[in-house]
């Protein structure tokens, strides 16, 4: 049997007090149900009351980055790699 891998999914989460869904990262899952469950397990372990969207990466159409030379890629692009992650605040705690 031809070996099939779990496709890549992008995860968007709106936290309890958040106003919109933000891109948190990606993961591999075999179907949408698993993707939601995995997203909940991986990306919301420290939060309560969230909303999760999962989308297969191949279904995302991304715009070209501004600085990018039009010469080298077609205008309508699939996510060749990933869409950008949401920027998290810079607070870092040390011991």
């Amino acid at each position: 049997m031809e070996k099939k891998n779990w496709p890549l999914w992008e995860v968007f989460v709106r936290s309890k007090n958040g106003l919109e869904h933000r891109h948190f990262g990606s993961l591999h899952a075999a179907d949408a149900t698993m993707a939601l469950e995995n997203a909940r397990d991986v990306y919301t372990r420290r939060n309560e009351g969230v909303s999760i969207w999962v989308v297969e990466s191949k279904h995302i159409t991304a715009s070209n980055p501004e600085n990018h030379g039009e010469l080298f890629e077609p205008a309508q692009d699939k996510v060749y790699r990933h869409p950008t992650f949401y920027k998290l605040p810079d607070e870092v705690k040390h011991m």
């Binding site: 779990w6 993961l27 591999h28 899952a29 698993m34 469950e37 995995n38 397990d41 991986v42 372990r45």
Partner: peptide, 11 residues
């Protein structure tokens, strides 16, 4: 069997 499953079972 996968990293994601590991996390789920540990949860």
């Amino acid at each position: 069997p996968s990293l994601e499953t590991d996390i789920a079972l540990t949860n």
